Computed example of a mutant assay.
Amino acid sequence: MTIAEDLETGRDTDYMVPALQRGLSILQMFNAHQRTLASNDIAERLGVSVSAIYRILHTLDEMGYLRKIAKNTWELGPQVVSDGFSYLASRDLVDLALPHLNALRDRTSLSCHLSIREHTDSLYLYRAFAAQRLSVNIPIGTRIPCHCTAMGRILLSGLTPPVLDALYQYVRLDDYPPPAPKTLPELQQLIGEDRQRGWVLHRSDYSTAIATGIRNHLGEVVAAINLSGPEAVMDSEESQARFREALLLTAERISAELGG
């Protein structure tokens, strides 16, 4: 059914955005049997003129969701595949990590979190919340700058120094409180030490977190996990060593399921 037909049949379109609907409809036209489409074909299926979809096609092309392969002929762009695989990979990762993090929480009575890197942010994908009065509880979907947290620093440790330089070339670091690094050279030095150590301990006002990385079959850091709890519980070197050992063992098990 075309957009014009929607209007004719009286469907509720008050809250719909026609340009967005057309853009998504265009992407849905491509499949295993229909790999390329001409502008005229796309316009005909939408029930509009070619001029009406020109800006939409151009926008999808600029964003990588479509690729122009000949005059007025299009195919799906690489961003469609990238987004799809990123989503599937993140869901697979959560499914694999979930039982291990729940078990780690039960053994330690501390909260556990799982995150991945998106640009310079650490994106929280899962939490195993410890049900005690003083617990660290960061909601799923939270984004925190990588250089400010234990998990974020672990995620950055998976980058080579040149890639890290390029990532932070235009990012201001001096707006964050200690112990976050204030300059790119400080960040490079800190991440270099984290990379050699393989784990990070980070203290904030009332809590402490220990984080380490999850690796795929290529040995790349694809995610980070942590144990976090009240400073009073994690203050001694003995307790830190015990929690760190449990965390590293859990990371090994999750990495093994990813082929690491």
Rank of each mutant, 00 (worst) to 15 (best):
R215P: 00
E118K: 07
P162S: 03
G259T: 02
Q189L: 11
A180Y: 07
D41R: 12
I214F: 08
L125E: 10
E245K: 10
V80M: 13
V48C: 11
E8K: 07
L88H: 07
S39H: 00
D165P: 01
H202Q: 13
T108W: 03
L258R: 04
E5H: 03
T2C: 04
S111E: 00
T212A: 05
L7M: 08
R11D: 04
R107Q: 15
S82R: 12
M16W: 09
A224I: 05
R127P: 08
P179A: 01
C146M: 05
A209G: 05
C146I: 00
T120W: 10
Y168E: 00
G23I: 01
S51F: 02
R55G: 01
Q240G: 09
A38L: 15
L93D: 11
A128F: 11
G213I: 02
E220H: 11
T183V: 07
T9E: 10
A251Y: 00
N40K: 08
L159T: 07
K71T: 13
V80A: 06
D235E: 07
T13K: 03
S51T: 12
A211E: 09
Q188A: 10
A241Q: 06
S228I: 06
L164G: 10
F85H: 15
A150E: 08
L101N: 13
I69V: 15
V221P: 10
R197Y: 01
T36Y: 01
A32H: 14
T73F: 00
A180P: 14
N102M: 09
E231L: 12
H202C: 08
Q28L: 12
P177T: 01
L66D: 08
L249A: 10
T212I: 00
V81L: 10
I144C: 11
W199H: 15
C112M: 13
T108A: 08
F85K: 14
H58P: 01
L125I: 11
S90N: 15
M1W: 07
Q240W: 02
Y87R: 15
S239A: 10
V80N: 05
K182R: 12
